[in-house]
């Protein structure tokens, strides 16, 4: 039992990965809860693909440092978020088709840019590697988590109001777009922060899956945010252990664990789950 659960975290790189994942688990899932209730879940897909070209350009310009690649990723993510939103508004087309177009392009462009450079392991970039979590990456994750939690606390009420009734917010307190942009910036930060440990394609999983599962645990936004954090922490620990023992990339292992919490919540969570509502059983 000790060998299975505790011994792996005796290793330095596992401890750093765990600390980083705990930081992300506290910050990212509450953002995911807002993405879900704002019906913007697809936006997370767009961002995870959208940051990839930025990471590659960052690495090309300033070398393989976490800060350079992270900064490139944040800039690319913000650009993609703004572009997708603007396209949907300007053309009047359905937003989901615009988003799909943007993220397919971004992924292809990102893979081309990354492949053109030597020294970057595409698999690690896309799916993460716990071995790569150095002190710089860890400070990055902790810093982003701190900024995200503070930022979310500041925009909490307007964000709820803007999600529920945008017209009412615009009339009573004004400035709906500012809250939305601030929120999107936090989402981009969290997606980028996860790329070292979890990989760009997987870091969104830790944001979205616990958030989707959380609706089976609470019927308030605050309650769902707390539930999503708890589920993400659980998924992080289980995923890192699976990654260690089975020698698979950390990102997919953690996301599969998060998926497990979702399936269990969907089946037997206290609210609107299949068992409770009598759909099965």
């Amino acid at each position: 039992m000790h060998d299975l659960l505790l011994a792996p975290f005796g290793l330095g790189f596992m401890r750093r990965a765990l600390a980083g994942c705990i930081a992300l688990s506290v910050a990212a899932p509450p953002l995911g809860v807002f993405l879900v209730i704002r019906r913007m879940s697809l936006m997370s897909d767009v961002l995870q693909h959208g940051v990839l070209p930025g990471l590659a350009v960052g690495a090309a310009v300033a070398g393989l440092s976490v800060w350079a690649m992270g900064l490139g990723g944040v800039i690319a993510g913000l650009a993609v978020a703004l572009l997708a939103g603007a396209l949907a508004r300007r053309t009047g087309a359905r937003e989901d088709s615009q988003l799909a177009g943007v993220y397919l392009l971004a992924l292809a462009l990102g893979v081309v840019l990354v492949s053109a450079q030597r020294g970057i392991d595409l698999t690690h970039l896309l799916f993460g590697s716990v071995l790569a979590v150095d002190d710089t990456a860890l400070f990055g994750m902790a810093g982003v988590a701190t900024v995200t939690l503070l930022g979310l606390a500041v925009i909490w009420r307007p964000l709820i109001l803007e999600s529920l009734d945008p017209g009412f917010l615009a009339v009573t307190t004004g400035g709906g777009a500012i809250w939305h942009l601030g929120f999107m910036a936090l989402v981009v930060l969290c997606v980028v922060a996860g790329f070292v440990a979890l990989g760009t394609l997987m870091s969104v999983g830790l944001m979205m899956l616990p958030a989707i599962a959380a609706r089976h645990w609470s019927n308030s936004v605050g309650g769902q945010a707390r539930a999503s954090v708890a589920l993400a922490l659980l998924a992080s620990v289980i995923g890192l252990l699976v990654s260690y023992h089975l020698d698979v990339p950390a990102g997919p292992a953690i996301v599969l664990s998060a998926g497990g919490t979702w399936v269990l919540s969907l089946l037997a969570g206290p609210r609107e789950s299949l068992l409770r509502s009598g759909e099965i059983g």
């Binding site: 999600s163 529920l164 917010l169 307190t173 019927n219 309650g223």
Partner: peptide
């Protein structure tokens, strides 16, 4: 939206 009736009403003072 996951919110209670009382909270929706209380948001009336947000302005």
């Amino acid at each position: 939206f996951p919110i209670t009736c009382a909270d929706v009403v209380a948001l009336g003072v947000a302005g």
